[in-house]
């Protein structure tokens, strides 16, 4: 970041020597600090509440920091929740959704970018238009599709196929991949063709390795999604052992048997994987948003 006088800000360094702009600058900092506190405190409260004992969480007056952190107690609560299979299932769902998204959207973007033939222009227009079509309206028809999948006439209920199909049907990512592949020189593809690579191999061994930024950005989003969305899994998966964590969170919200601290622990569990992803891929996430922005 440039620290010289030519910043992109509205106020330059000579403005900041004036008292009123000094005040304004101070106000900005104060505002941002407050905004940061509001950003962090609720989550912190949830984490701390998850660490409290059942007795403490219902005590009045309520405390913010737990009096003592009892790791064994938390482990006990976690055991009582009995959600090991659901955690594993959410992980599996995450991985499956990510893989199907990359494979389908990546291939689609590759064809639209490098192998465009007659008739594909119209299809690509359709894909672009699809980005605009709002999603809520499809809820009921989609459910009907999953109950009795057309052509094959099988029920996809209690499988993860619906979520994978939905993750793959991401027109936005098709366009994103297409735009990204457009920046890869065609000569690379041609020389591989001369070496006798078939098109699918070119995709796997040349295009994919060159597209790490695009793949990283889209897969992070795809990987995190199952940790936050509950509605479709709740409708499709009725077997409680197979339900992902968000659905469990929704289902148990009004359960009277649920203790506050164990419920908060459930929220923390859902937040851990996206947090780990953020810690490791912070650059891609913060930069990736710009990848999406440029083409919007």
């Amino acid at each position: 970041m440039k620290k010289t006088s030519s910043t992109t800000g509205i106020m330059n360094s000579s403005d900041l020597k004036l008292a009123r702009y000094k005040c304004l600058y101070g106000f900005f900092i104060a505002f941002l600090v407050i905004a940061c506190l509001i950003s962090v405190l609720p989550t912190l409260w949830v984490v701390l509440s998850a660490l409290k004992s059942t007795q403490e969480i219902y005590s009045i007056p309520a405390t913010f920091f737990p009096k003592k952190i009892d790791v064994a107690g938390v482990a006990e609560v976690l055991k009582d929740l009995n959600i090991t299979s659901n955690i594993i299932c959410t992980f599996i769902l995450s991985v499956l959704e990510t893989l199907s998204m990359i494979l389908v959207c990546g291939l689609g973007g590759y064809v639209f970018s490098k192998l465009r033939t007659k008739g594909m222009g119209i299809l690509f227009m359709l894909v672009v238009w699809t980005m605009m079509v709002p999603g809520t309206m499809r809820l009921v028809p989609l459910y009907m599709t999953f109950v009795d999948f057309p052509v094959f006439h099988v029920s996809l209920l209690n499988t993860y196929i619906p979520m994978c199909l939905l993750a793959a049907a991401n027109s936005f990512n098709v366009v994103l991949f297409k735009n990204f592949f457009d920046s890869i020189p065609g000569s690379l593809v041609e020389s591989a063709q001369l070496d006798g690579c078939n098109r699918f191999r070119i995709f796997l061994s040349i295009i994919i390795p060159l597209s790490v930024p695009a793949i990283a950005f889209t897969s992070i989003t795809a990987f995190n999604a199952p940790w936050g969305s509950y509605l479709m899994p709740m409708l499709v998966i009725t077997n409680e052992k197979l339900q992902p964590i968000p659905t469990i969170i929704f289902r148990l919200k009004n359960s009277s048997a649920m203790k506050m601290n164990s419920y908060m622990l459930l929220l923390v569990i859902a937040t851990i994987p996206p947090t780990i992803v953020f810690v490791f891929f912070q650059k891609q996430i913060m930069g990736g948003i710009n990848v999406g922005a440029v083409k919007g």
Binding site: L107, G108, L115, M120, L123, P141, F149, A169, R199
Partner: peptide, 24 residues
């Protein structure tokens, strides 16, 4: 081969977006 490689994309878009939209 381009059409074969495009097939998955069209398949999911058709069954997950276009068809539900129209049939709805």
């Amino acid at each position: 081969s381009p059409w074969i490689m495009l097939f998955p994309t069209i398949f999911v878009l058709y069954f997950m977006i276009w068809r539900p939209q129209i049939m709805g």
